[in-house]
Write a protein that binds this DNA or RNA. Structure first.
Lengths: 144, 144
DNA sequence: TTGAATTATATCGTGCGCGATTTAAGTGTC
DNA sequence: GACACTTAAATCGCGCACGATATAATTCAA
């Protein structure tokens, strides 16, 4: 088999497993997040803020790999749900800083059980999960 | 730091790398697909049909892990673009069979170069890609 | 210091994804 | 044969994703 043909097959097959696995994992999270009326992307943003509250939209976007066209409406919905506040930065009025409310912080406790629940629910091998995570991160670094 | 505290951090979860990598790969495909006015999901469906023309909506959904609520509008758009025909099955009139048009088949040639272009563009290690693919497929099998 | 370039966020339009429901066709049971 | 049950698509509503563009604040350069 030529190198060329090999590449073609391999690469064609990598794109779909990524796409499918990502959606399947999202579906796994959904019933757990639903109890808190959260979407998957909102959960991602919450995790970013728990670790680093007060970030600007831009800074959140850099971590989540999302732009304002996705984040602005999402953050407004989260503000409506009283999970966070959107505060105009004093020294640079273009910037909106996002600060979690008490309710936003409380969710951290409620959602703490999610990772373990998912692990026990799927019993996916921990070693494989680690490998997969490493490979994905390398891919991300290369593409980012 | 406790093991428990670790779990909830974005960087330590598998969910985010999967989500991010999937979107980054989609973005990589997009400029190439755009020339043919295709979306990423339409490309997935095309690949399925190239391999197995004449499938029903249900059968395509089984392969793509998508339901009619996603597929019906998507297939209608592809029909509009004259890439395929939607034909009511004679022996079971609930079923819609999807058949590629000449134009749909022609795209197979045009898009053949995509995998190579992506590889040369990213030079992602072939061995790692293979490993990643295997791990993803195992995960998918478990979650499907 | 003033006008051009840059930057941060917002807005708009389109196409997914997907839960929930509807419609219509086929199947099974009595 | 009638009626419940199942199945395949379609429809609806909502929330992302994201390219393109707009708006407003800041910075830079002549």
């Amino acid at each position: 088999m030529t190198q060329k043909a090999d590449h073609q097959i391999l690469e064609n097959q990598l794109c779909f497993p990524l796409y499918a696995a990502s959606r399947l994992v999202t579906r796994l999270y959904q019933p757990l997040l639903e109890q808190y009326k959260l979407t998957y992307t909102q959960y991602i943003v919450l995790m970013i803020l728990w670790q680093n509250d007060g970030l600007s939209v831009k800074q959140i976007g850099k971590k989540a790999l999302l732009n304002s066209n996705t984040l602005t409406p999402l953050l407004k919905r989260m503000q409506q749900a009283q999970l966070l506040e959107r505060i105009k930065n004093e020294s640079d009025e273009r910037q909106i800083d996002i600060k979690l409310t008490a309710k936003g912080w409380q969710l951290k406790q409620g959602l703490a059980c999610i990772p373990q629940q998912l692990i026990s629910q799927t019993d996916y091998d921990t070693e494989k999960a680690k490998q997969l995570k490493t490979l994905l991160e390398q891919l991300i670094t290369q593409l980012k």
